[in-house]
């Protein structure tokens, strides 16, 4: 059972409920044509980011994936700025330069996704090296998906992290599909977690519908990294409730797969059932959180939709760190 306090658990529920509500609403708004560009929704995977991020401080660096909204919220990024970024607004987290997939927030230790999907592991090596060299006490967490693990850069990064004993935790969210291709088809060797053994680091597989399992695995890996014992790999088994991207016809999976996951593998419902059954939190206070969150999400979307776009005269900004 988790070692978190009642207050921390209530906060974890709030974080997950916020992620869920944010994405459910995003799904509706996207379908209505109000969301520009391209979005990948995190609904169904909330316990992964929440369980991992509950073990991190502001000194730690989380290298995000392109399925970025949930982990950004879990890392404590301003949800209003997150929404505005997705809506391309000038007050967005990255002033409209990053978009849905590249949410970045230095002060909360949230690093923008790298688009090549597996590179977070290599970048994480560098962030871990910098933390150790500079003595910040921080660690790096590279969040990647199952689709990334067959990229060479992941193997290179795992190897480098191991030989240099870097304070790095690699979290692989296995949602069963690399875009539209099944993980079972694409991944050789009997599973992702097993690959850790080849690099001489602990590798565990946890149920991503179980917040407590994720939290405990992440706690152990973070602790190991902080103690200078080197990197670890955690494979979190999750199910995404929506497609790879919004608009994905999902012809590669059965129609009822996501519905069944909502019934049987919903991390929020599981969390609620556990904490209520164990008498840690009561249903009433969780309901209150849900109400609060619903109100927050209404305000977040209303504000994002009304926010101004970046001014045209800012087009040439942020290309170089100093003026040329």
């Amino acid at each position: 059972m988790a070692t978190q306090s009642r207050t921390e658990l209530l906060a974890a529920y709030r974080t997950m409920a916020t992620m869920r509500a944010f994405e459910e609403r995003m799904h509706i708004e996207f379908a209505g044509g109000g969301v520009p560009g391209f979005v990948h929704l995190y609904a169904g995977q909330e316990a992964s980011a929440a369980g991992v991020c509950a073990n991190l401080t502001d000194h730690d660096v989380l290298l995000n994936t392109h399925r970025a909204h949930g982990p950004a919220i879990a890392r404590g990024a301003d949800i209003f700025a997150v929404a505005k970024e997705i809506y391309c607004r000038g007050e967005g987290l990255c002033r409209g330069r990053g978009g849905s997939a590249h949410l970045h927030d230095t002060k909360n230790g949230l690093w923008a996704a790298n688009s090549g999907v597996g590179s977070g592991v290599a970048l994480g090596c560098g962030a871990a090296l910098a933390a150790r060299t500079r003595g910040t006490g921080g660690i790096a967490v590279a969040l990647v998906g199952d689709g990334a693990v067959n990229q060479g850069v992941v193997s290179e990064g795992l190897n480098l992290a191991s030989i240099w004993k870097l304070p790095l935790v690699v979290v692989v969210e296995n949602n069963g599909y690399g875009e539209a291709t099944a993980a079972g088809y694409a991944i050789a060797g009997g599973g992702i977690a097993r690959r850790a053994e080849a690099f001489d680091m602990p590798g565990v597989q946890v149920d991503g519908s179980d917040y407590f399992a994720v939290f405990e695995a992440a706690a152990a890996a973070a602790e190991r990294a902080r103690r200078g014992k080197g990197p670890s790999l955690i494979e979190v088994e999750v199910t995404r409730f929506f497609g790879h991207f919004e608009g994905d016809a999902q012809t590669y999976r059965s129609r009822d797969e996501a519905e069944r996951a909502r019934r049987e593998r919903d991390c929020l419902a599981n969390f609620r059932r556990t904490v209520v059954a164990e008498g840690i939190l009561d249903a009433g206070e969780l309901d209150l959180v849900d109400t609060d969150v619903a109100d927050l999400i209404d305000r977040v979307y209303a504000e994002a939709e009304a926010a101004p776009y970046p001014p045209d005269d800012e087009l040439m900004e942020f290309i170089y760190a100093d003026s040329l």
């Binding site: 290599a122 970048l123 090596c125 560098g126 962030a127 090296l129 933390a131």
Partner: peptide
């Protein structure tokens, strides 16, 4: 290069 990017964005 990946490690260089990660390190460069975090203080080295």
């Amino acid at each position: 290069l990946g490690a260089a990017v990660g390190a460069a964005t975090t203080g080295l």
